[in-house]
């Protein structure tokens, strides 16, 4: 079993949509965006996850004012990534717990897994 799983980052799996990266609505105003940015940076300071912090910073720089938001809409040609789609259609909720059935499925015979 590979405990390292997948340590290599994939740019195509980062947020391309700055709104989703910061977790704000598309009609959010400057203050809401600023507040969301500060909260996100507080939750994920650069020393904890430099890559995520940089993504947050870039997202904030892209939409922090109304003019920048309009420019982003006009000139940013990057399409949404898988993570954008997932966060847009069905955002992650608070960490949950598997039910007993899910536990049993993992521990069950290989044929059933």
């Amino acid at each position: 079993m590979d405990k390292t799983l997948n340590p290599m980052p994939r740019p195509d799996l980062e947020h391309a949509d700055p709104y989703l990266c910061l977790g704000v609505e598309r009609d959010a105003d400057d203050a809401a965006i600023h507040a969301a940015y500060l909260a996100a940076v507080r939750a994920c300071p650069p020393e904890r996850d430099a890559r995520r912090f940089e993504a947050l910073r870039q997202a904030y720089q892209a939409i922090r004012t109304e003019r920048l938001r309009l420019a982003q809409e006009l000139f940013d040609t990057r399409p949404a990534t898988a993570i954008d789609l997932l966060d847009r259609a069905a955002p992650t909720e608070a960490p949950g717990r598997p039910d007993e059935e899910t536990f049993r499925a993992v521990l069950g015979p290989r044929g059933k897994r």
Partner: peptide, 15 residues
């Protein structure tokens, strides 16, 4: 495999 995915995503809070 599928049960592991279900388990991990349930922990993560995926709908």
């Amino acid at each position: 495999d599928e049960p592991l995915r279900r388990f991990a995503t349930a922990l993560r809070g995926w709908s």
